[in-house]
Design a protein around this nucleic acid. Structure first.
Lengths: 331, 331
DNA sequence: CTGTTAGCGCGTTCAA
DNA sequence: TTGAACGCGCTAACAG
């Protein structure tokens, strides 16, 4: 692979001149500029990133640590973040914690070794030693979607309170009184916020405050299905189910159909935080809070870029919209 | 951030000794080993990756370029690949071409700049100049799921012929004669292979050879919906639809329901290459070829690791299974 | 087994 | 504007 030395030799200039042309740092004569560029093109020169990083003490790489890349919310977020980062001249190193604090720690170490310039982080909720070390290191950090209590880093995430309000309003409009709520882990900020907003608002929207209708999973389909089963086992009746994220709703619907059969299950209306492709096909169709992953990813990157440029990054709550798919004439 | 020099000073040994202990290259005395390790722990030393890469002329980073990270098949594949790579001591740099050859080129350039050690590649089908340069550079490459005609690199992918056979057998068992087929781009190897297998096998399975029942999209929901509409517009009747990948099936179902309404659409059976979470909830449920993304990702990484170690990597077709969800008593 | 030293490729400083 | 020289942090080669 050609080095800058090869380029300089071919262009008949000194190494320094070639470097100046290629990294555009200072003025060069039109003549040497042209010759260096031509030589570089002929040789297919691509600067050696590690060498450049070593010298400049920055990598132009941002780390993105998400909790579960198979969750469509995060894969869309990752996609948007990547696009936005590229626009600002950064490469994204994507890591998937797989909802597992140990893996998150391992990746944070990898990020540190790679000397990323900044971190986009969707945390598990716990402050492990590695997380603490990362935060203490002075690395610019932005939280995406989830935050950690007491940590001073801007959060770019969904307006959970607003989303839950939309669900509550919908439940009331649909006349539901007995509603099963399947939340997420309380240690994850989105889980806690959505649960808190639901508990705070249910009475005012005419919804039963019977806590036997409440349970929580792990924000994955499996744990949510178990939670749904526990509620069913308690023998309280309900006419609607509210799943606190997309995977949770998936698990809940699965459990309902398995336990009650498709026909009985279809008598229960389902509403979800997070909108998924197939909700329109469910019977009955599932209404949902649209959680704008793209915007969160994009804004998060912009915030981090601001931080890196020494500017302020205040964080931001992204508004939700509600997709009402309830069928006319039923209630 | 602490350097190896700091560690050596603190441990009271020379730089080289610290390096030997920390990278475990050669034998060191138990004493210096203990002292270096202690010093490193106290300082929270993490080796500078770029510097190490520069010196060793390798990065221990693998590039993974997928065509669409928002496609669940690829997000699962990426997840599995990442896990497997980690087991072998590699970090994965994930890039998303977004089904766009230009973006793919941009990422290949980034990979080259980062000096990745090897590439896992799910190509668009076209050999752009950048793809050609990458292949010509001698970088070890493995294709995942898709290949490029005439390029000599091992492919780890689905056994498309087998999968299509399973669909054909199912269609025959269900007594379908008039089947609409929505394929993918012919330039993508999976699109071409699935289409070829379908065309080759349909007559033997008692399926109409009327080519008005054939169309193709872009392997995304939007293009597939358009293809479905074109078939509907031709006015030929059919009792089943076969979507050549998951997103295609999604688009097809959407189009059917929009054009025919949910009730009429429910009279048409749908079968898919790729299995998605929600197929069990569709009415009627959608049967599907299970496409083992995890295995493909895992095997691909192993193949690339073999290549990097100077061993052979023959490539492999991963067998499919079929999820028959057809409802008893109907046909 | 350990200390010393060269140099990976690059950007930047200092002189000219 | 340009050339020459230095050093980023690390590993490997060599000498002891």
């Amino acid at each position: 692979m050609a080095t800058i030395k090869d380029v300089a030799a071919r262009a008949g200039v000194a190494l320094g001149t070639a470097s100046r042309v290629l990294s555009g740092s200072s003025q060069t004569s039109a003549d040497s500029r042209a010759r260096v560029l031509a030589a570089a093109a002929e040789l297919g020169y691509i600067a050696n990133g590690p060498a450049r990083s070593l010298r400049r003490a920055r990598t132009d790489v941002l780390g993105l640590l998400v909790s579960d890349i198979r969750n469509p919310f995060f894969s869309e977020l990752a996609h948007a973040a990547e696009q936005e980062a590229r626009r600002h001249g950064y490469t994204v190193l994507l890591a998937n914690a797989n909802e597992d604090a140990e893996q998150a720690d391992a990746y944070l170490k990898t990020f540190a070794a790679q000397r990323i310039d900044g971190l986009l982080f969707s945390p598990q909720g716990t402050v492990s030693p590695q997380v603490a070390a990362t935060l203490a290191s002075g690395l610019p950090v932005v939280f995406l979607n989830r935050t950690i209590e007491g940590v001073d880093a801007p959060l770019y995430g969904t307006d959970n309170a607003q989303g839950v309000q939309q669900v509550l309003a919908w439940l009331q409009r649909r006349g539901h009184r007995d509603v099963a709520f399947i939340g997420g882990p309380d240690g994850i900020s989105t889980g806690a916020e959505r649960r808190a907003a639901y508990l705070a608002g249910r009475r005012a929207h005419g919804i039963s405050t019977d806590d036997r209708l409440l349970d929580a999973g792990d924000f994955l389909a499996g744990g949510a299905a178990e939670a749904m089963c526990r509620i069913l086992d308690r023998g309280v009746t309900f006419t609607a189910v509210f799943g606190a994220n997309g995977q949770t709703t998936l698990g809940a619907v699965r459990a309902l159909r398995q336990r009650l059969g498709a026909e009985q299950a279809a008598r229960i209306e389902v509403v979800s935080f997070d909108d998924l492709d197939w909700f329109e096909f469910a019977s009955p169709p599932i209404s949902a809070v649209r959680n704008d992953a793209s915007s969160i990813g994009r804004l998060g990157v912009r915030g981090l870029v601001d931080l890196l440029a020494g500017r302020e990054a205040p964080g931001q709550r992204v508004p939700t919209t509600f997709a009402d798919r309830s069928v006319q004439g039923t209630a």
